[in-house]
């Protein structure tokens, strides 16, 4: 078909056909998923978070490095703390990688409603990391249970601890996402996220009697309590229970994420 240009032009003005489809939340999640799976940095960070956690159980079992008062669950998940750190890095990269490459401008021209973009990234980070955390922590527990000599250590209670560990992966990732939204540069944001996870337990002893309060509020401490490791004594990370600790961390993560989302909505994108 070959149309006359002039006819096309007049018809063009006469025709109000609304655009089909929209750029809403569902579409934004689809976009985020394709971005996540099509770049090495995010994909492999997520894979690494899971792998470290699962292989950690093998390492701990083979090196027989468990304390006598440790549980099978806690010992198997020793390296979940490292996996959790990688989860935070993943959260950072989901946003800072876009700033580094300029993709953030493409993302925002495709979906200019920034709250929707933040919501989509939040959903992606939380669900990917929950899945990674649940699968890898379960695998770690099963590996540890199989490899550790039976009867030597207390078993620990894997349920609902494994779900809690998965949740702590997701929460750490969201904390990373929030830091990424605020800092915007990969190196700075990764450093900040790792510092948030590590510093409370490093600096805790400096606070004397308040050590439990300082070290206990970190996402790492919440994970340690959840997996019932012998490192998570009340004198080190406070007497708050595992569930309460996790809720506390989730609570302030939501707070930081709201602040970061607001900053993201207000700031210009360069």
């Amino acid at each position: 078909m070959r149309g006359d240009t002039r006819t096309d032009r007049t018809e063009l003005r006469a025709e109000p056909r609304p655009p089909a489809g929209r750029a809403g939340f569902r579409q934004a999640i689809g976009h985020e998923w394709i971005k996540f799976t099509s770049v090495r940095s995010t994909l492999w960070t997520a894979v690494a978070a899971g792998t470290v956690t699962a292989l950690g159980a093998v390492f701990v079992a083979l090196s027989e490095s468990l304390q006598p008062d440790d549980t099978v669950l806690g010992g198997s998940l020793t390296l979940a703390v490292v996996g959790q750190m990688l989860a935070a890095v993943f959260g950072v990269l989901v946003v800072s990688g876009e700033y580094a490459s300029g993709t953030i401008r493409t993302t925002l021209t495709a979906c200019p409603r920034r709250g929707t973009v933040v919501a989509a990234k939040t959903t992606l980070v939380a669900s990917v990391l929950y899945a990674v955390g649940l699968i890898s922590c379960t695998a770690a527990y099963l590996l540890g249970d199989a490899l550790l000599p039976s009867g030597t250590y207390a078993q620990g209670e894997p349920l609902p601890a494994l779900f809690g560990a998965a949740a702590s992966f997701a929460v750490s990732g969201l904390l990373g996402l929030a830091i990424g939204l605020l800092v915007r540069h990969s190196a700075g944001a990764v450093t900040a996220a790792v510092a948030v996870l590590l510093l409370p337990s490093l600096l805790g002893p400096l606070f004397g009697d308040f050590q439990g309060w300082v070290a206990g509020v970190s996402p790492t401490a919440a994970l340690e309590k959840v997996i019932q490791t012998s490192d998570a004594g009340a004198e080190v990370v406070g007497s708050l229970g595992a569930g309460a600790s996790l809720l506390l961390v989730a609570g302030y993560t939501v707070g930081v994420l709201l602040v970061a989302g607001t900053a993201f909505r207000l700031r210009d994108v360069h």
Binding site: A20, I34, S38, V39, S101, T106, C111
Partner: peptide, 23 residues
């Protein structure tokens, strides 16, 4: 400007992502 695609992503995936984002 041209620098708005992640260097590690293929052109096809970049466009696919944008297509999905707007239905």
């Amino acid at each position: 400007g041209a620098g708005e695609v992640h260097g590690g992503r293929s052109a096809q995936r970049h466009l696919l992502g944008l297509a999905v984002s707007n239905g």
